[in-house]
């Protein structure tokens, strides 16, 4: 990564090494505990990889919504990871993306109907964001980055870890928003009655603001190793994830989409 263009890590390996879990904890690779710890902390989809931003911002108005969204995404993630892992020898390379989309969309439809049947109130409040789990980058990203290359057991663990990490992140963001914006936690009044709720936190701007502060805190405390490298700059870690998650990492010119476009058609982001 050059100083002239701080927006991009030229070498995807560079980022990987810095955030690698094995630098901090020694767990056997591709085992359930390793995958779960990785999903919750080192590759936390929201705070570390900046994936799945739409549901993170939209469904964190209350803790209840966040739990509903997080758990339904987790269920879909585990099931789609399992099936993609089982079918990884059968799906031809060229038909990968459409097959993944169909598998994911099928599970989303199932969850959609289960929620409509069993939790109608939550289904109502989450609205269009339930079917939109199809385009959640986390699920496609894990299918591409992990489940398509690993066995079913490891893929389930990976899906569970990522899902739990996502759920925790949603709950944390939602707790702050609900507490400040409404004075409650999961519907129960926590703040003293003299507390005047700051409405903006449950509205759209509050979502951006709370997430910004959380990611800044993560940047400050988490990435000690990375911070020591002088040229580290998290800008442009995503055009929907960073290189670790990017489905086009093979044949990638190492430039962000915006630069590649400026230079003609050299790469694809």
């Amino acid at each position: 990564m050059s100083k002239k263009n701080p927006g991009m890590q030229i070498d995807p390996e560079l980022g990987r090494k810095r955030f690698e879990l094995s630098r901090y904890i020694h767990l056997k690779k591709d085992t359930a505990p390793e995958r779960v710890v990785n999903g919750i902390y080192f590759e936390n989809p929201v705070f570390m990889l900046a994936l799945g931003m739409c549901p993170t911002l939209a469904t964190t108005t209350s803790v209840t919504n966040a739990v509903g969204m997080g758990l339904s995404t987790t269920a879909i993630l585990i099931m789609s990871n399992l099936f993609i892992s089982l079918l990884r020898g059968i799906i031809p390379e060229r038909m990968r993306m459409p097959s993944y989309i169909v598998i994911i969309a099928s599970f989303v439809t199932i969850v959609d109907f289960l929620m409509a049947g069993f939790t109608p109130a939550m289904y109502e409040s989450l609205g269009v964001y339930i079917p939109l789990i199809v385009v959640n980058c986390i699920i496609m990203g894990r299918a591409e980055a992990y489940a398509g290359k690993h066995g079913p057991a490891a893929s389930i663990a990976d899906g569970a870890g990522m899902g739990i990490g996502f759920t925790i992140a949603l709950i944390v963001v939602a707790a702050v928003r609900e507490l400040l914006g409404n004075g409650t936690f999961a519907g129960f009044r926590v703040m003293p009655s003299v507390y005047e709720p700051i409405n903006i936190f449950v509205l759209a701007p509050g979502a951006f603001l709370v997430l910004a502060v959380f990611v800044a805190i993560m940047n400050r405390f988490h990435i000690g190793a990375a911070r020591r490298d002088d040229d580290w700059d998290p800008t442009g870690r995503f055009v929907c994830g960073d290189c670790r998650m990017c489905p086009r990492v093979h044949g990638c010119s190492g430039k962000p989409a915006s630069d590649a476009a400026a230079d003609g058609r050299e790469g694809r982001g």
Binding site: G206, A212, V215, N219, D233, F238
Partner: peptide, 14 residues
């Protein structure tokens, strides 16, 4: 520094 990149963009969006 902690606000560089993603967080400052989110603040702008807010």
């Amino acid at each position: 520094r902690p606000f560089r990149g993603f967080p400052i963009v989110m603040v702008t969006a807010a």
